[in-house]
Simulated assay, not measured.
Amino acid sequence: MSGKPARHQTSMAGMIGAMIVLVAAVLAVVLLRDLGRESAETSPDALEWESAVAGAQDTGLEVAYPARLPAGWKVTSVELEPTDPPTWGMGMLTDTGAFVGLRQQDESVRDLVETYVDDDAEEGDPVQVGGDLGGTWSTYTDEGGDTAFVLERGDDVLLVYGSAPREVIIDFAEQLTEAPRD
């Protein structure tokens, strides 16, 4: 016996080869694990918004809200900030998954349009909207297909906007009311 420990000869090529085999094995495990899974479609939960309207009205705020929500629509966000002046908003998905939003606050029209539609939104011809809050509403559109309708009422600006078709947004605006909730 020579008294020397046995040595294993290693080379850079051998180490790179082992690394490639290891990475391939990890990728194979990940791919096989995901093969058996079905991807779950995620959809936001519908929120209960009527109590926010009732609560705002109980404190003396006059907030615009839909007298009825169209069939298949769901409210995905509600915002009520009792600041001075207060801020009110709702976000909804239509039955086809398009977005419609409602904002009511004491802010300039330009600021609201830039925040919720686009910095470069262009003003279009005004439209007549019926319903409780009917009248002449300003219109704005952007290059991405978003549309907004704006009604100025005293200090408040009411903005109805979204990616839904123009007619759908107008129909929604016609459903708006400030009537006391039961």
Rank of each mutant, 00 (worst) to 15 (best):
P82K: 09
W137G: 02
T42N: 12
L61Q: 14
G135V: 06
E62G: 13
G14R: 12
G60K: 06
G89H: 00
T96M: 02
L35N: 13
E107L: 08
A71F: 09
E79V: 14
R7N: 07
V21E: 01
A40C: 08
L151M: 10
D120L: 06
E178S: 12
D125A: 15
S11Q: 04
L61W: 12
D34H: 10
V23F: 14
E114P: 01
E152N: 12
W137L: 03
V117Q: 00
L133G: 01
D118G: 08
R37I: 07
L102R: 07
M92D: 01
G144C: 00
R7G: 04
L69A: 07
V23S: 09
V100P: 07
D84E: 15
G97C: 10
R153L: 04
V53P: 05
R7P: 00
D45Y: 03
D111R: 08
L176I: 06
L32E: 09
D111K: 07
A52G: 02
G145Q: 08
W137E: 12
T10R: 10
D84C: 06
E79M: 12
E152M: 01
Y140I: 05
P44F: 08
S43P: 03
P82D: 11
S11E: 04
E174A: 14
G130Q: 09
G144Y: 00
M92C: 06
D106M: 10
T76M: 05
V75N: 01
V100I: 15
G3D: 13
G144H: 00
R153T: 09
T115V: 08
V129F: 04
G124S: 08
V100L: 03
S11M: 02
R181D: 08
M15F: 06
D111W: 04
P66A: 11
R103D: 00
G130Y: 00
S163E: 07
G135A: 03
R153N: 13
S39R: 15
E62T: 15
D146S: 13
E152L: 01
G162Q: 07
P85I: 11
A164S: 06
A6S: 10
L61G: 06
T10Y: 01
D84M: 11
P126E: 08
F149K: 08
G145K: 06
P5A: 11
A64R: 12
E50R: 15
L158A: 01
L159W: 03
R166Y: 06
S39H: 05
R7Q: 13
G89T: 02
E48W: 02
A54V: 11
G55M: 04
L80G: 12
D119E: 09
A46K: 12
T177M: 07
G131F: 15
V53I: 14
D142F: 03
V117T: 05
A164Q: 01
V78K: 01
T141Q: 09
A121Y: 11
D171L: 05
G144N: 02
P44H: 03
F172K: 02
D84V: 14
W137Y: 02
